[in-house]
Design a protein around this nucleic acid. Sequence first.
DNA 1: ACAATATTGAAACATCTGTGCTAAAAAAGA
DNA 2: TCTTTTTTAGCACAGATGTTTCAATATTGT
Lengths: 207, 207
Amino acid sequence: MPKIVDAFDRRELVAQAVFQLIGERGMAHASLRNVAAQANLALGSVRHYFDNQAELMDFAFRTNSERVHVRALDRLEELESKPLPAQPELLVEKCAGVLEALLPLGGESSRDAVVRMEFMLAARTLVHLGQAALDDYRATGAVVGRVLMQLLASDLVIGSRKPVDEAERLIAVLDGLSLRMVLQPAWATPEQSSATLRRHLASLLGP
Amino acid sequence: MPKIVDAFDRRELVAQAVFQLIGERGMAHASLRNVAAQANLALGSVRHYFDNQAELMDFAFRTNSERVHVRALDRLEELESKPLPAQPELLVEKCAGVLEALLPLGGESSRDAVVRMEFMLAARTLVHLGQAALDDYRATGAVVGRVLMQLLASDLVIGSRKPVDEAERLIAVLDGLSLRMVLQPAWATPEQSSATLRRHLASLLGP
DNA sequence: ACAATATTGAAACATCTGTGCTAAAAAAGA
DNA sequence: TCTTTTTTAGCACAGATGTTTCAATATTGT
């Protein structure tokens, strides 16, 4: 029997190369040849693990989406496992900590968010990425929804806010902050966005 | 002297073709040949009015950006020219009317917003579009800032909100709503986004 | 050592891209 | 009508892309 290279590892290594290329030079430069070069592989090798470019892109998209949401879900489950803090400030802090996993606040999460945005926009016209985009949307919707439940359940909430409405607004805030940091990182700093997110969450509790 | 075709009209006609292509098939398909075909022109003709593809894209970007902001500024100046309504509901309605010019709520504004988003993301890696993207950001920042001034000046505002902070948040809401409608028009309807925007504005006045 | 087969490498093909260059067509002044 | 100059059209080139095809390499079980 021949050499057995763990196919999963190999595919993820190629996906990493895709992320690097998209992050630094944009989706247009994520060609098979560029990806192969970035991963130090031959074009034939890449095509041995992925039948199509479409399959490669779908895999990379889903891998990226999973990375982001796993980060958020880890923090979320840690939040849900403990009793909620009684003070509003602490509660806001906890919830913001979860949601910040969805923002490009530096390090790995920054490149992930950029790549995710590129994939999302690409999925608008590349039909074979449509399902992955839908799955991504559902995943972030679930995260935001669960965080919001924690907030609104803590009888600290003022007035009668409809959870669905506030989820819609909170998702908009998150997407907007994310978009701005991706497109104009010089203008939208992590500290600024972080603070804006916290202010928004606080405004859901106090007036 | 030869035939004199109004160069401005011609350039805008070509830009229209660019918008159509980007809106329907994405930035990647906005090649010179596709643009020429879409505009019923020969490749040589397009190149007669634009030296580069870079120049064409820059012109199209700025034309698109101008369309969006002119729509908003028209409504804004009409708002600023009259005394502010005393009732909170009417004030919110007026301000929302201005800001809705920045959202893809159907008709021409929908395609404009989609195209604008594609250009913005493209400008992240295409350096020759960087300046146009910056100018666009400044323009929407100015619009949002002026609308917010109207709101906060109307001694209806509750608590002590810092205008800069609220501008940041409002821009995020607008960008987020816009992004979602562009990427998932089936999930984010105009009515929904419109309502969310109004709720956000109302929350700046009442608790 | 040998054979089987996953893995790699490379060449070729058709298509598309931006750009440079040249020449035809067309229209308005003389 | 003739001339001038914009406008249009088309060819050609070099480069890049996805895909197909086929041969060479390398590694593991026997």
